[in-house]
């Protein structure tokens, strides 16, 4: 029971601090789950992200359910997910009932323009950090650069990348290029 409450609170905290999509969550997941609580590792987070990309539902929720489940089973998954959505429920309800022109306020626009710059830098730092664990050899480097380049220049669904990379991982391991 205590663990479930901890999960709920940890994810509520992450939900309240995430501005933007599931990717903006990475720095906070790293900080709160990997560094502070040791509930998961950076590599596992990347696994969850990959699976969360190609399974139904939005990434942020999928990742929350995954981590919660690995920490405290089925109810852990539910507690983490409810924690993740709790701040949204409170904040959006408040804004929708009192501040309908919230997004048009100049101060909000300026603040958010600043936040976006920060999100870029935090994502950049996260990539540098994740790099070590996720890209251990040349074959993985090729995969990573190919996914990055193709998704920047073409409008390809992440689902396709995930499926192809899983296949490539199996193929590279079979061919013995892994670890070189």
């Amino acid at each position: 029971m205590k663990k479930l409450l901890e999960l709920f609170l940890a994810f509520a905290k992450i939900g309240a601090m995430t501005f933007g999509g599931g990717y903006a969550m990475i720095p906070f997941l790293e900080r709160e789950l990997v560094e502070k609580r040791g509930w998961t590792t950076s590599e596992e987070l990347m696994d969850y992200y990959a699976v969360g990309q190609c399974t139904p539902g939005i990434i942020a929720i999928n990742t929350a359910t995954f981590v919660g489940q690995s920490v405290a089973g089925t109810f852990g998954g539910i507690a983490a997910t409810l924690g993740m959505v709790f701040p949204s429920l409170v904040i959006i309800t408040l804004i929708a009932s009192v501040l309908t022109n919230f997004a048009e306020l100049q101060a909000v626009k300026s603040a958010f323009a600043g936040i976006r710059v920060c999100v870029c830098v935090l994502i950049f730092n996260a990539v540098v950090k994740l790099w070590k664990g996720a890209v251990p050899d040349k074959a993985a480097l090729v995969l990573c650069l190919a996914v990055f380049g193709l998704s920047v220049f073409f409008d390809i669904s992440p689902v396709l990348f995930v499926l192809l990379c899983a296949a490539a991982g199996i193929l590279f391991t079979r061919l013995g290029v892994r670890g070189k």
Partner: peptide, 20 residues
Amino acid sequence: DAAFYGLRPCSVGLIAAAGL
């Protein structure tokens, strides 16, 4: 395990692209 070995660099590539 081999599939995840391919998936991790994929996640990092996707995150970097989203950052860009």
